[in-house]
Every structure is written in structure tokens, then in C-alpha cells.
Design a protein around this nucleic acid. Structure first.
Lengths: 174, 174
DNA sequence: TAGTATTTTTAGACTAGTCTGTCTAAAAAT
DNA sequence: ATTTTTAGACAGACTAGTCTAAAAATACTA
């Protein structure tokens, strides 16, 4: 594995479990076993690593979600499976919530570069949910419940908001 | 105004517009025109200021909300006014979202002291919404939409998620 | 009301550490 | 021959928190 990948992998892990501001470059390069020179050879700043992380996370998260739904689409309706996916992610990632929303809270509100990446991720999610439910009367409603599910389960460190939302959505789509 | 109040007022303002981690003690004491000794005479750590801020914010936010509803209860149903209150707060505070959720994203996930303050704030909100709607079949549903409204309007820097949620809630309660 | 004791606030030096980012110069890989 | 990576020193600025010693404010008491 080349330095660039090691940096990105380590930074992603640290940003995700510690947060962006609490993760320093020195920690990244040490845990990635990379020289500081290589860090700044491959990335021009910490912010650029952040953006690279968000892009990678975007790809990984959507792929995982789509995979999950594809795998179980015989058992339940896709949109309901999306909520099961959240439950599974919370278990796997220990209720760390949404990387995008977490970083949104950490950056100064005038950082439009990062803000745009976050907004685009959520726009894609909103659109994807719309494509799953195929009913534009309720799709934003479901999107809002989906978002709530993520944040509230992070907040309470429990799955009840997701289960509650799923139950509501079940009624909404029938 | 005594030093303690000046510190709390300044810190609250800075935490709210810059975030917790991006606000240093030196900036707080300078903008509050207070000696560093006074800071540590009145608070034993930055974390304690954070908790004091959250408690003050909790009181202020709820009082504002209840005031708003009391003032306009003849025009519309209380629970719908709660959403109008969010719109007004976004205008007043420039879409900075929820201080509690913002700080939730900034603190290490093992900081149970701060986490508890945040959880209690949201528990109170959930309960208050329940008391407004007086229908435990939909009250959590509304709570989840309320939370989404705050975060998504912060994310998109726009009021549409609140307006959308309000419309949904209007149908839910009739 | 005057004098004393206690609490609070002041300015600022200081510690020991953190941060992002730059730079050099050599080694390794391509 | 060029690109990439290495180790690590270094800069300049920041961090939370401690400490000193004097001044100011407050409270207590005779």
C-alpha cells in the first residue's frame, strides 16, 4: 500500500472515530507510518485530506447501502431495508453517526468548499431515497425521518429512533 | 456585569458561532475583558464552561420557544408554532443549528458528562413536544421531524425542511 | 461609621504541550 | 533522470492550565 492510500485510510479512520479537529497531522502520519514530507507531497493541506476522506466515505457508504439492499431485497422492501442498514452500521461503527453531519458541526460556517461536499452527499441520499420509494408525495418525508434516525440514534446511543422511523415509513408506503 | 457572567456570555456566543474546539480560553478572556486568573477562579476548566453554556442555552431556548408559542397561540396550533419558531431562530442565528447537536459532534464519544447534558436537553424537548400534541401515537414522529428540520435547514442553509415538516405535521394531527 | 478580614479580580509571566506547515538532504523507487 | 519517500529539525503560532503578587471589592465586626 502506497503512502497516499495509507494516509487516507488512517485519516479516514481517525476523522471518523475522533472527529476532524481532534485529529492532528502528526497522529495521522505516525499511525500511517509515513513521513511528514510524503503527507505534504500527496496532499497540499489537512483540508484536502478531509475532502478526500468525505469523497471516499461517500463512495463507501453508498456502495454498502446498495449492496445491503441488493442482497436482501427478497426479504423486505428496499426502503425499509435502508433503515435496517442504519442499524447494522451503528453496530459496526459504535453509534458514531454520520461523518458528514459530524464534520458539518466542526467546520467554520464559511467553509463553502467542505460544505458543498457535504450538501452533495445529502442531495444524493435524498435522490436515492426518492428513487427507492417512487412516490414523491412521501419521499422527502422519509428522507427527513432517515436523517433523524441517524442523528438521534447517535445521540441516545440506541436503535429505537431507527426502529420507530422504520415503523412509520412502513405505514407511509402502504 | 461581573466577570463570571461576562465569561459565560462571551463563551456562549463564541461556542455558538465558532464551535467548542475552535474557541480558545485566551479568546474568551480577551473578548470578555477578564483576567485569566478570574477565569480559573470562577470555572475549574473549559469543560465546566461548556456545561454552564449548555445549561444556559437550554434555559434560554426553552423559554424563547414557550414565549413564542404563548404569544401566538391564537393564530395557530402550538405544535405548528414550534416549527415557525425554528424558522425565526434560523433567521436570528444565521442557520447555526442546534448547539447541543453541534457540540455532540465535537466531543470525544466517551465524554459522558457533556453527553448527559445533551441527552437531557433532547429528552426535555421530546417530552415537551409530547405535551403539546397530546397524542402519543404521533408525538415521537413529530419529534423526529422537528429534529430533522433543525439539522437539515442548517445543512442546506434554507428553511424548506422546516416548512416541509410543518406541512406533514399539519396533516398528522388532524 | 471605621477598621479589619476575606473574597475576588487584576496583569501577565510561565509551563509543557499541541497545532499546521516548511525545509533540507539523502535514500529509494520508478 | 525523474519522481517519490524518508527522517527529522524547525518555525510560528496556538492550546489549557498554573502561579505570583498586588489591587480592588466585599463582608464582618467593634
Amino acid at each position: 500500500m502506497k503512502p497516499r492510500s495509507r494516509i487516507l485510510k488512517t485519516a479516514s479512520h481517525l476523522f471518523h472515530i475522533q472527529g476532524y479537529n481532534s485529529t492532528g497531522i502528526n497522529q495521522i502520519i505516525e499511525e500511517a507510518s509515513v513521513a511528514k514530507g510524503s503527507f505534504y507531497y500527496n496532499f497540499k493541506s489537512k483540508e484536502e485530506v478531509c475532502i478526500a476522506f468525505l469523497n471516499a466515505r461517500h463512495a463507501y457508504w453508498f456502495e454498502s447501502l446498495k449492496n445491503y439492499i441488493e442482497l436482501k431485497k427478497n426479504e423486505e422492501q428496499p426502503i425499509l431495508l435502508a433503515f435496517d442498514f442504519l442499524i447494522e452500521m451503528n453496530v459496526k461503527e459504535n453509534f458514531r453517526g454520520c461523518s458528514f453531519l459530524n464534520i458539518l458541526s466542526e467546520i467554520p460556517s464559511d467553509n463553502s468548499k467542505i460544505l458543498k461536499v457535504i450538501q452533495n452527499h445529502k442531495k444524493d441520499l435524498r435522490q436515492y431515497i426518492a428513487s427507492l420509494v417512487n412516490n414523491n408525495k412521501v419521499s422527502d418525508h422519509i428522507y427527513l425521518l432517515f436523517e433523524s434516525s441517524i442523528i438521534e440514534s447517535q445521540l441516545y446511543r440506541g436503535q429505537w429512533p431507527i426502529k420507530k422511523s422504520k415503523k412509520i415509513v412502513k405505514h407511509l408506503i402502504q
